[in-house]
Design a protein around this nucleic acid. Structure first.
Lengths: 235, 235
DNA sequence: CGGTCAGTTCGGCGCCGGCCGAAGCAACCC
DNA sequence: GGGTTGCTTCGGCCGGCGCCGAACTGACCG
């Protein structure tokens, strides 16, 4: 329990995010996808040698994981925990007063608030609405943290959604929504729902960010909709 | 929603913790008390000029708040949110394999795990046990997040514990315990309980850290004890 | 008033780290 | 084989930052 040792560990951790280039990279990676080094260099506005070094540091530090494929270096967040940490930190970053923005920026922000991914699951109004609907229907049990009810498991099964196990971690987790300030479904179940919806084409990614477009009907999930329906009418 | 701008903000934030001296200071401040500059300089093992600059940075950055009193500069964490962030980060820091430690270090760690403060409320086995006891007794409702039941409010009232309101934030919050990996009671209620117990002398601070010694009987809270009693017998 | 003590300001030192261009690999494509 | 492309390594540049000792300020104490 040596305080100075602890301090060093915490500092080493924070150092990874303490550079704006690296922070930008990590934030971009929050979309849950794997990016190549060159893509990230372009995004962050630095040269390839520079991004290469940054990626080395982040991978060595355990924040990112990489896959080499031919001459490509794909990099992504190391895992769900990492994504959670980043979401949490970003949510805690000082709430700046919104300055006057262009119309396109405003519409982008709207799209972002309406429906987006949070690493591997849904967030924004969509994520919260889906969570509410599942709760109403009795698919989730919030009495002690959050858990899937037997009905919930059956429901997933009927939809043909396979939830990949995550060695020891609970299948469904709660994640605080940055824009809604309310919890939404995360964890393996959240990821499975999101993957399924993307595969089915119910939602698609809006290029260049984490925002989503609801193309089909979220009612396809067979849930009592309410907010979801309202949301759809505005998409 | 400019990614690079977001990155800069996140980086600026992380930079405050990215230095081991500053990180050590923040960790020490997690005990919720106000420290003087010289105390912190000694703790961190740097000169007074150096600590002075670090404190400037942390205060300007909004992580710490300060009070000037005569020739003293008292500094503490800016608020509960800040403390939550730090606890969360520290919990996420890589779990090092425990190296061989001296006996005194081990006993310190035990004391720390048994009972300590987490900024302004109880943590460790004590915090978790108190939380469990309150839950058993029906003082807390975990069905949607966590809330105080009417019985809980009455109970606090009977004990003569006054909960200070925190403009809009829920009176009781859940905080993940670093050592127990389970939630314990935080928020205004958690703070009030801790303050009360300290005032009553039921627990006292072990000098030089966040660890607590249980001197009286936590049964004084009038709760079904179980774990708490077992805990007491070992303190 | 002089002495002490907490904290700050200043100047300067040293180094770490972010950046790039040029050159070097290594994979893939004719 | 030669050309292209994704990425890394190498040198070198430069700015920032963490640190200190010395000197200063301002509060408090006789």
């Amino acid at each position: 329990m040596n305080t100075s040792t602890e301090g060093q560990e915490l500092a080493a951790w924070a150092k990874m995010l303490a550079d704006s280039t690296r922070a930008t990279v990590c934030l971009a990676l929050l979309d849950g996808r794997a990016w190549t080094a060159t893509e990230l260099a372009k995004l962050a506005g630095v040269s390839r040698p520079t991004i290469s070094e940054h990626l080395n540091m982040l991978v060595d530090g355990g924040l990112l994981s990489e896959v080499r494929q031919g001459r490509h270096r794909y990099v992504k967040l190391a895992g769900p925990e990492t994504a959670e940490l980043l979401e949490g930190l970003a949510a805690l970053a000082p709430r700046r007063t919104e300055v006057a923005n262009s119309l396109s920026a405003a519409s982008k922000r709207d799209a972002f608030a309406r429906a987006r991914t949070c690493y591997d699951h849904f967030a924004g109004k969509l994520g919260v609405a889906l969570t509410d609907a599942m709760t109403e229907r009795g698919l989730l049990d919030w009495s002690d943290g959050v858990a899937l009810t037997p009905e919930g498991a059956r429901w997933l099964d009927e939809l043909g959604i396979v939830v990949e196990s995550r060695h020891g971690r609970p299948a469904v987790r709660s994640c605080l929504d940055v824009t809604e300030r309310r919890p939404h479904v995360a964890g393996a179940v959240g990821a499975a729902l999101c993957t399924h919806a993307l595969q089915q084409g119910w939602v698609t990614r809006i290029t260049g960010g984490r925002a989503l477009k609801v193309t089909g009907s979220v009612e396809t999930f067979g849930l009592p909709v309410g907010v979801v329906r309202e949301l759809l009418s505005r998409s």
